[in-house]
Amino acid sequence: MTYPHISVSNLTMAYGDYIVQRDLNFTIARGEIFIVMGGSGCGKSTLLMHMIGLKTPRQGDVFYEQQSLWQANAEQRNRIMRRIGVLYQGGALFSSMTLAENVALPLNEFTELSKSEIADMVSYKLALVGLAGFETYYPAELSGGMQKRAGLARAMALDPEILFFDEPSSGLDPISARLLDDLIVSLRDALGTTVVVISHELPSIFAIGTNSVLLDAEAKTMLAQGPPKQILEHAQDPRIIRFLTRGTGIAQSAPAKTDT
C-alpha cells in the first residue's frame, strides 16, 4: 500500500481563543507541486508553521507517510525535519555571509563532510539554481530573484525529500516570478521532490500547481481541494470563483511557455 507523502488530519489552528482554521483534511502525494492558496489573513503561513513543526495544533495532526509529527518524540521529529527544506518569504539569507557560507550552514551543522566536500556540495547546489560562480557574492549584491534562488539552494543543501515555499513570488517582478516557477518545476522533475507552495499569486498557482487546497478566512476552513484549474472549472461557490478569478468571474490564464 502506498501512503500519501504528507497528510493533514482534522487540523485546527488557533492563536489563544482565536480560531484561524478548523477541520483541515487533505493529503499530498509524493512528487506533487501542492499549492496552499487563499486570500490574505486566511492562515496559509500559519498552516506552513504547523506542517514544519514550528507551531503546535489546537487539534489534529500532520503525518509524514505514517509518522505523526506532533505525537513523535524528539528523535523521531528530528528525523522528519531532516527530510524537509524551507524557502521563507524573504529568502532569509544572512546578509553578513557570502552565498557559499549561507548554503554551507546546514551542511556544517548536520553533516560530517570535510571542508572540501562541503565546498563542492555548495557549488553544486548553487549551480542547480542557476547561480554557478556566485559563491563569493553577498546577498545585497544580488537581485530579488537571485536572492530567492540562493535561499532555495540553502533549502536544498541536505537533499530534502520535501520542499516548502512560503510565497516564493512575493516581491518579484513578473519575469523573475515566472523564472522561479520554471525552476521549481524543473527541480521537481529532476530530483523527484515533493513541493508545497504557499501562494495567492494566480499565475503561479495555475502554471505549476498539480494539486491544491483553498483556505477561506471567513469560513475558517478549506473550501476546496484538487488541481487549481479543475477547482475553477467545477466551482459553484461564489467565494471560490471570486478568489480564482480575482473577483472578475473570468479565469486568469497562465502565460504560455517560451523557449530560452
Score class of each variant (00 low, 15 high):
162 I>V: 14
198 I>H: 10
158 L>Y: 10
157 A>T: 08
233 E>L: 12
184 I>V: 15
77 R>W: 03
259 D>G: 03
207 A>E: 05
198 I>Q: 11
123 S>P: 10
256 A>K: 13
135 E>V: 06
188 R>Q: 15
73 N>Q: 07
180 L>M: 09
224 A>Q: 07
4 P>S: 02
68 S>R: 11
150 A>G: 03
253 S>I: 07
248 T>Y: 13
125 K>Y: 06
259 D>E: 12
18 Y>E: 05
257 K>L: 14
91 G>S: 02
80 I>L: 14
72 A>Q: 05
185 V>E: 12
188 R>N: 15
77 R>M: 11
136 T>S: 12
178 R>C: 10
30 R>T: 14
240 I>V: 14
142 L>R: 11
18 Y>F: 09
128 L>R: 15
252 Q>E: 11
70 W>T: 08
123 S>A: 15
10 N>S: 10
58 R>V: 00
239 R>P: 04
107 L>N: 09
160 P>F: 09
88 Y>N: 05
184 I>R: 03
192 G>N: 06
174 P>T: 12
183 L>G: 12
220 K>C: 01
198 I>W: 06
4 P>I: 04
223 L>H: 02
161 E>R: 12
122 V>L: 14
89 Q>F: 02
42 C>P: 02
90 G>A: 06
132 A>R: 11
174 P>Q: 14
72 A>E: 03
12 T>P: 00
137 Y>I: 01
107 L>W: 04
131 L>I: 07
73 N>E: 08
4 P>V: 05
189 D>C: 08
51 M>N: 08
189 D>S: 13
148 K>D: 04
9 S>N: 06
102 N>I: 14
124 Y>C: 13
226 G>P: 01
112 E>C: 11
252 Q>R: 13
216 D>H: 11
214 L>G: 00
258 T>H: 12
251 A>G: 12
251 A>Y: 09
190 A>I: 03
66 Q>M: 13
67 Q>M: 11
238 P>V: 04
237 D>R: 01
51 M>T: 09
190 A>K: 15
26 F>D: 00
166 D>G: 07
50 H>E: 02
17 D>R: 04
1 M>W: 08
162 I>T: 14
76 Q>H: 04
239 R>V: 07
183 L>I: 11
161 E>V: 10
122 V>G: 14
169 S>V: 03
83 R>Y: 01
32 E>G: 08
112 E>Q: 15
99 L>I: 11
31 G>L: 10
163 L>A: 10
248 T>F: 08
252 Q>K: 07
213 V>N: 00
32 E>N: 11
201 E>M: 01
197 V>N: 02
74 A>S: 07
9 S>I: 06
223 L>A: 02
134 F>W: 05
181 D>A: 15
12 T>A: 00
256 A>I: 09
1 M>Q: 10
16 G>H: 02
49 M>R: 15
115 K>Q: 14
153 A>Q: 03
226 G>M: 03
22 R>K: 15
42 C>M: 04
211 N>G: 10
37 M>V: 06
215 L>F: 05
45 S>K: 05
260 T>I: 13
169 S>T: 14
133 G>P: 13
45 S>D: 07
128 L>S: 11
36 V>M: 03
225 Q>D: 00
24 L>E: 01
167 E>M: 08
63 F>D: 01
151 G>C: 08
219 A>C: 03
